[in-house]
Design a protein around this nucleic acid. Structure first.
Lengths: 184, 184
DNA sequence: ACGTTATGAATGAAGG
DNA sequence: CCTTCATTCATAACGT
């Protein structure tokens, strides 16, 4: 109903936002695929919290592909890092949880368990802040998965539903919370 | 034109989608009625933004009814809250437009309207501060500039950008354009 | 079969 | 850094 549907983004018409006209609504930055790819590549190269000058340089380079501002780069890294952690935490938790001990899948997983501890704790203090000096991008033909795609693959793992009942009543809030959940 | 969007399906194929008995198809989570009921119940009880722990507990409980992950619960609450608000806003707009003569309630409500942010008109003309573009003065000796400070430097408002040099979305097939990020 | 709706998922932008 | 809000994309579900 309320679909704006055909409004279509198309940036702000080539001029940016506040140019000349009246109150042109400055829509939010919509990164192009190339921009995303470069950013993702930088992230994968180990760059997590770029400094101000790095941000500006990245932004400058990326501006070739489309309108972009420094703050977009800044936000991108912040969000990407935060969500990477967030997702990882959630996935690991719900993987280890709610799986029956005698489930053969878990058995296999334990048997195959890779050195997960390598990536276990991205301790920031020990983060080497390793940025490769000459980073060749543009694979020209390689299509390697981005973080998002990887996350999707990881999280789409379907596990056996089973588990057991286990009372939910925690301290959600002090309010009434008279929930009688219909389990049992 | 949609080539920019690469939202291909996950398509579980043969990997990891061990649906436990139900005809559950991988892809996106489809909550069962019981799950929806519990979630709705929790929402009605006042829970709006569950913490991580709560999300995990809820997810664990709900996994009894079917496949579910923590992030599903997370998204569910996010969406539910957002859409609740969205509808509400739409209704309020609607009611301010169509006033029934015999409806005292709406009249009173309009009169009493605290207007949290009704007049949130982004008046740009009154902007007192002008951000200057030349900001890379001193990259030196600023140890650990706070993120907020960083943002202050990076933000450039919605002013005209000098990068509207080329047409947008016209031809994405542009040449390789070797971008080598050796600038960091 | 196809258009519409409902809703899961994602992410840019802030705030604290 | 963490959470939260708003907007949007994508798709299962549904009605015609």
């Amino acid at each position: 109903m309320d679909e704006a549907m055909s409004g279509f983004v198309i940036k702000a018409g080539g001029g940016g936002c506040g140019n000349g006209g009246g109150g042109t609504k400055c829509g939010r930055w919509n990164p192009t695929t190339e921009q995303v790819k470069v950013l993702t590549d930088l992230f994968r190269s180990g760059l997590r919290t770029p400094s101000t000058d790095q941000i500006q340089k990245i932004s400058s380079q990326l501006s070739f592909y489309g309108k972009i501002e420094s703050k977009n780069v800044f936000y991108w890294f912040q969000n990407h890092k935060a969500r990477e952690r967030q997702k990882r935490r959630r996935v690991s938790v719900d993987e280890s949880d709610a799986v029956r001990p005698d489930d053969k899948i878990s058995f296999i997983k334990r048997a195959l368990a890779p050195s997960l501890s390598d990536f276990a704790e991205p301790n920031q203090a020990s983060e080497p802040e390793r940025v490769i000096e000459t980073l060749q991008l543009f694979p020209l033909n390689s299509f390697h998965e981005s973080e998002t795609e990887k996350m999707r693959l990881l999280t789409s793992e379907c596990k056996e539903t089973a588990s057991f009942t286990y009372t939910i009543e925690t301290e959600m809030d002090h309010p009434p919370l008279d929930l009688r959940l219909s389990f049992l």
